[in-house]
Amino acid sequence: MGSVIGALGATFVSLVFIASFMGALHAPGPRAVPIAVVGTQAQASAIGDSLGKVRSGGYDVSSYPTAQAARDAILDRKVDAALLPAPPGAVLAVATAAGSAVTNATVADVSTVAQASGTQLALQNIRPLPANDPQGISQVFFVIALLAPSLVFANMLVTRFGRAMHPVGQLLSILAYSVIVAAVAVAVTDPGIGALTGAPWGLFGIGTLLAFAAAVTAAAAARWARGLGYLVVFLLFIPVGVASSGTTLGPHMITQWYADVGKALPAGAALPAVQNTVYFSGNDTATPLLILSAWAVAGAMALALTAYFRPPALGAGRHEPAHPTADPGATAPQAQA
């Protein structure tokens, strides 16, 4: 019976992975990709209507007064591309560092509109990905390499080598682990491999916050709800969180409501934080960092509260004597006549 239950549990976990990743990534395409157009609002609306005929709901077009303002909007992470006037044609400014998949799809659809209107279109990549990481995979694996081991560490801490520790001690252990694992990850990623370069301290801060938020949330869930609590956090953070982040595709290339869910989870918050820190000078990282901080604070509070509302050691039973000690002053009950 135990083996059957285990097989059913493993099958359920597998189904969550399959449904989440296949559901999110099986039919990628632009969804509400923000694009800037230099011109009036009427001109932006007209281009938006033309793009809507190519791909319904694929783009959210807004007007900007100058080409410089539109380019700045890309670097500030307000838009992913900008259509600039360049008589007799136009220039499409993009940033593959924002995501090669969304950039390629945008270029293809804008080119279709330009060809239909007889407009000559040139491309300008103002923030490319490095040659050694042309698909932007490094940032995805940096996040996963911190997220997954942190969940494992949390479970081992509260069920194995740290099960007898006070919750405050477990909290301090998680903090120390987070600093160490983030430092190692940055050392390997930046000077070691040269995959994500130029912002080591920013990466270290994001990595520490991500590792701590994941580990402390998983530890608190395991202390409050044991294996079931840990399983829920694991499934929420890994198959759901990673898939709904869009991974290398980006959030604008998957179903929009699922991408919105992902932005509220650690993986979906950490990915844009890493991306914008490394490639866009730290612009538009406030919201992702606040989300990670919220998970970290909530998890820390939940773990600390187990000191007052849960047994101090997970799975430890009460240590009561096997046989009650007889009271030497007690008298034996008198037999009734």
Rank of each mutant, 00 (worst) to 15 (best):
L271W: 03
M1P: 02
V113R: 15
S56K: 10
L123W: 10
S63R: 11
G29C: 07
S100W: 02
G229V: 07
H252W: 06
W224I: 10
Q334K: 11
A108H: 15
P328H: 04
D80E: 12
S56V: 04
N132K: 07
L196V: 09
A24W: 05
V94C: 02
Q139T: 10
Q275C: 00
V91M: 00
M165W: 15
V233G: 01
V54Q: 14
P311C: 08
F212V: 02
G89Y: 08
S3L: 14
P239M: 04
A296S: 13
G250K: 04
T96W: 04
G317S: 00
A300P: 03
A337M: 08
L265T: 08
A211N: 06
A42W: 03
L303G: 00
A337E: 12
G2S: 08
I5R: 15
Q135M: 14
S100P: 00
Q115P: 04
L75R: 12
P312H: 13
I18F: 15
A218H: 14
I47K: 01
L75G: 04
A46I: 02
Q124H: 10
I74W: 07
T331A: 15
R31T: 11
A98E: 05
N283R: 10
M301N: 01
G29W: 10
A215H: 07
G317A: 08
R77D: 10
S117F: 08
G57T: 01
A93H: 13
T277E: 15
H319F: 07
A10F: 06
T208R: 00
M156T: 11
G229L: 06
I35P: 11
L157R: 13
T287H: 03
A313D: 11
Y230E: 06
V232T: 09
P87N: 14
D190S: 14
L210G: 12
I144D: 09
A243I: 06
D133P: 01
A270G: 12
P328W: 04
L292Y: 03
V113C: 15
A300Y: 01
G89K: 09
V79S: 11
D60T: 02
A185L: 11
P85H: 09
A221T: 07
A7T: 06
L171H: 05
V107E: 13
I47N: 03
L84V: 10
P65F: 02
A95T: 07
G282I: 14
V54G: 09
A36H: 06
V37S: 14
A213L: 05
F12R: 00
G2L: 11
D49K: 09
G241P: 01
V102A: 15
D327G: 07
L314W: 03
T285F: 02
A222S: 13
A164H: 11
G169W: 14
T287D: 06
V140Q: 12
V232K: 00
G162L: 13
L175S: 13
S100F: 00
A270P: 13
D49A: 13
Y230N: 06
Q43A: 09
G9T: 04
P288L: 03
